[in-house]
């Protein structure tokens, strides 16, 4: 090696030329399929070799690589290395760990982070051809059967709060165009939703991602933004519910004897009603009156459903 450093000339005393050539061939095939001519050129132009390689000799090298565990086939005049012993391998325990992490981040991080993680794991699958990892990921994936290009676009539009028109396969009215100001992608009950402001109803809305067929148009100017008229809803949460996580729209306005008085600002009373129902008896809606009455009517209808049985 000292000799090489001094003269920058490679000699037979210094290294195993045959070993070197087989590694060169291996690295060429690892980059992708190679024709005979491409391999010849690589040997001819290599700074240490500068020599031709005969067809018979090349076959001996290929046979040797096969013998050490490389799977090499000849396809359409090219040598193709399908697998080799130095590929990244993933054990069953490693699969469990990778999936466990997916589950941890699924309910804690933004959709964009989960998306990055899933894309990375899918790349690992393609590098390793590991069908067990693929099956395990498919079982937990929230992006299964979802157009990933669409997800990527929506993440971009949400970041810029773009006004977009989507083609939505609505369960009520089948396919329809919907104009929405994209706000964020979120996961609820293992499904991805696009949250935003519907321009048809001028209120916060959510759309199941798997029902969004495509984005028809994007308004990059964000002109004619809607004039939203948010409603303030007041409710009391009992002391035993106080560990509950409040959202950005909620603010505590008073600490009462029974618990806390919270106000939430909303443009979609339907979604607010669902949210407050989750608290069950721990929540009492205080105002506005019409929302309170609607809330009580809903509970009475629910009561009737059970009394009929």
């Amino acid at each position: 090696m000292k000799e090489f450093n001094k003269t920058n000339t490679v000699t037979y005393n210094l290294m195993s030329f045959t070993g070197f050539k087989s590694l060169l061939l291996f690295s060429l095939l690892a980059k992708g399929p190679q024709t005979n001519a491409q391999i010849q050129a690589a040997f001819k132009n290599h700074e240490y070799l500068k020599e031709d390689i005969a067809g018979d000799t090349l076959r001996v090298y290929i046979n040797s690589l096969r013998r050490v565990g490389c799977v090499i086939e000849r396809k359409k005049g090219k040598y193709v290395m399908l697998s080799h012993p130095f590929e990244l391998s993933i054990s069953q325990e490693q699969i469990r760990a990778i999936i466990k992490i997916y589950r941890i981040i699924l309910n804690t991080l933004d959709v964009s982070d989960i998306f990055e993680y899933e894309k990375f794991v899918r790349k690992l699958i393609s590098h390793t051809n590991n069908s067990d990892l693929k099956e395990a990921l498919d079982r937990v994936s929230v992006f299964k059967n979802v157009d990933t290009a669409l997800v990527q676009d929506l993440i971009k539009y949400c970041a810029k709060k773009r006004k977009i028109t989507i083609l939505y396969n609505s369960p009520r009215s089948s396919e329809k165009d919907i104009q929405v100001i994209a706000n964020k992608l979120g996961i609820s009950q293992g499904k991805i939703y696009l949250y935003g402001v519907s321009l048809e109803y001028n209120q916060d809305s959510s759309y199941l991602l798997s029902r969004i067929l495509k984005v028809l148009s994007v308004d990059i100017k964000n002109d004619n933004m809607p004039d939203l008229k948010p409603v303030t809803v007041g409710y009391e949460l009992s002391k035993t519910a106080q560990n509950t996580k409040l959202t950005d729209e909620d603010r505590i306005v008073e600490i009462t004897d029974n618990g806390i008085l919270v106000e939430t600002t909303t443009t979609n009373l339907f979604m607010t009603k669902r949210k407050l129902l989750e608290f069950g008896p721990l929540c009492t809606v205080l105002y506005p009156d019409d929302f309170r009455e609607d809330f009580i009517s809903t509970l009475k209808r629910m009561q009737k459903e059970y009394s009929d049985g």
Binding site: I90, S91, E93, Q94, R96, A97, I98, K100, I101, I104, I105, L109, D113, E116, Y117, K119, F120, V121, K123
Partner: peptide
């Protein structure tokens, strides 16, 4: 983006229990 996913994997690893699964992920 993929390197970011690796750093995410490293961060989340701290929530795995000590044992075979965690050790195997470190090796991976």
């Amino acid at each position: 983006h993929e390197l970011y996913a690796v750093s995410l994997m490293k961060s989340a690893m701290s929530f795995l229990p000590k044992g075979k699964v965690k050790t195997s992920l470190v090796t991976f």
